Amino acid sequence: MPLPDDDHTGSRIREQRRLARLTQRELADRIPYSLSLLNQVECGARPATPGFVAAVAHALRVDSSKLTGPPAVTALPADRLLALVAPIREALDCFDLGPNPDLADSRPEPVLVTEADALCQQVRATHLRAAAKALPALIVELTHLVWTAPSTAGWRALSSAYRTAHDVALKLDHPDLARVALDRMGWAAGQASDPCIEAVQRYKRATLWRSATSTPLITSGQALLAGQTSREALAVTGQLHLGLATVAAKAEDATAVESHLAAAREMADRVGGEAADVHWLSFGRVNVRLHELGTAIVLNDFDRALGQARSIKLPASTLTSRRARYLVDRALAEMEAGSAKTSLRYLAEARKVAPEQTRHLPGTRATIRGLVHMSRRAPDSLGGMALWVGM
């Protein structure tokens, strides 16, 4: 079943009505408007007047903003979210201010390098809040370090911290801040003179906001690694091909998608196993298969996506963030196949595995919305899931 492509007040009224487990007749009986008008508003044939919206909101016991506009997807209250994000923004702003006079007793380089790796692992395990709280102080200390005792290891660690800041900001629905973090990452990568890190930075820029510059950014990253055959370079090159496959899927170019997936498979075979220790990536055969699933979904080839999803067996070592993404993709594919109960089960499993990440993934909302439209009366479990994501 295709996802509904309407996004208007009437469609949101229909969603909220079904989440309240009411038929159109039952809702019409609770408002001073006819069943015929309600039906026409829900299907988009008639506009919803302010009075109509107010009456429906009162009957459904929801705020009218849930009916008149897309709800916010931020998981945390605004004040708590700001408390996490604002210190990261301030830390990113200190990159060109030189040594910090308040850090005469800063921790030694090996300790900071180790912490940068640890925070990266926290994000990959979807412990976003813990990483967000520790990140600003680390960035400040690493910035002081590279100004007072610059070294390749220090610049690489700072690049890692900036990459972590990007991931946290993006997962907390702050794409503008994520872009600033990537700019800082590019600056630090250039100072480290590490082409692999520079290539990863361009890949992340390309996939943050897919636009006309996405393909040139990734191919410029590939050019930085041309002729290099180290395991590190092969893993990054393979990841760049996966990025190009994703961009091609967005452009509905199935031929280019398969070409880049094939190149990524070749790189995975040459790398052997999962390269989980290469510049915060985890490239390998499993990652390629997950991208095959993801690109099939983007191309709306749900028969193929479902077959791929059902054939993937994730090893126990799979990153939590990657496992959650697979479960959401699997839920979406099952929903499209009409398997509502199975879809909801995989969505619930994703929520259990990585609640912070699952709440923010676009596929989560798309799946819940599709399940609501499939249900004459949404079951309590689906209603609870919709409430959890803010629908």
Rank of each mutant, 00 (worst) to 15 (best):
R289S: 15
G221Y: 02
R205M: 08
L38G: 05
I139K: 09
E252R: 04
R163M: 12
L387N: 15
P175M: 11
A251R: 08
L244N: 15
G383Q: 10
Q121C: 10
G51K: 11
L60P: 02
R21S: 15
E336N: 08
G294C: 08
A72T: 07
L217D: 13
L224V: 02
R330L: 00
A316F: 04
A45Q: 14
D63F: 03
G390M: 00
R322Q: 00
A268W: 11
A178I: 00
R310S: 12
A181M: 05
M185R: 11
A57Q: 03
A28Y: 07
D6F: 12
E198C: 11
A248P: 10
Q40L: 03
R179V: 01
L344S: 09
D183T: 04
A235F: 10
A248R: 03
I297H: 02
V123M: 04
R345N: 04
I88H: 03
A20G: 01
D380V: 10
L112Q: 05
A262C: 02
G154R: 02
D253R: 08
V298M: 01
R107Y: 07
A125S: 15
L290D: 10
A134S: 15
P150Q: 09
S317Q: 08
E115T: 03
Q24K: 07
G221M: 06
C120A: 01
D79H: 05
